[in-house]
Design a protein around this nucleic acid. Structure first.
Lengths: 138, 138
DNA sequence: TTAATTAGTTAGCCTAACTAATTATTTATC
DNA sequence: GATAAATAATTAGTTAGGCTAACTAATTAA
């Protein structure tokens, strides 16, 4: 029954975490969902809408909307692929610059909130969360 | 930089988890936020709106709304305290019954998704999440 | 007694998701 | 090669689940 406590603590930390994350991102007119997309585009390269939806386990219209907002901010742009229906989304130059800036803020924030957790324990957490996700998807 | 991976995995599992949880709860017209309140009232006894807001790190109007919806479902009721402004919220008889029923479903679900994670590792995760929450709140 | 505080609600806003239906294009089938 | 089926993306409309500002009613402090 220890898992009860696990998910209780999970829910307890979620809102304070999201609130703080969004507060930090708001200085750049960003929200966590949009930031997630920027991070993915930076680390994994350009992606189309279907790919973005699948990476974040959201529906296409949700992904499409988030990308539209990022494009309005000037942080991403679409290039047409071979397939004329497809929009390949990538960071703009401005997006790259903002990413670098925000990345520092977020890194400082994240490293501050894991203070007191050993690297070994962090690895255990990663592996546990991964197991949970995989159990959910099967 | 291992914390980057930790929060990446955190976000990756969050949506599949919430989707499944809400799907299970929907059979009883419940959502995860409402379920959280029912669980708290069951395990910790009656609470007023301010206490509920503080436990879930949400604002008073948000707590008030969630309680109103639970009351409309007939799962909770308010009794007046000594202070006439105060509403002390508790589970109704129907709420108790539903809690027991749903609890079984949710327990089965949660235990299925932690399959493959040792109890020791689960304790490590709990302790890590708790550390993060406390770092966030200081 | 009056001012400040507190509990709760109402109204209106926003993010972040969803489904259903539509358009444009590509791929598969006959 | 024509047509049917599938796919990429969008539009329109809905919802949960938060938020702030402003309010009423009751309590506490000055």
């Amino acid at each position: 029954m220890i898992y009860r406590e696990l998910f209780k603590e999970y829910h307890a930390m979620h809102r304070p975490y999201m609130n703080m994350l969004n507060e930090l991102l708001s200085k750049h007119q960003l929200f966590s969902s949009q930031w997630g997309i920027m991070r993915t585009l930076k680390l994994e390269g350009p992606k189309n809408i279907v790919e973005i939806a699948s990476i974040f386990y959201i529906e296409k219209p949700s992904a499409s909307n988030l990308v539209r907002k990022l494009a309005e901010l000037g942080y991403v742009e679409a290039v047409q692929g071979k397939d004329k229906r497809e929009k390949i989304i990538r960071l703009t130059q401005q997006g790259e610059t903002v990413f670098t800036e925000v990345s520092e803020t977020i890194d400082a924030f994240l490293s501050s909130i894991v203070e007191g957790i050993s690297e070994e324990d962090q690895r255990t957490v990663i592996s546990a969360l991964e197991t949970i996700r995989k159990n959910l998807l099967k």
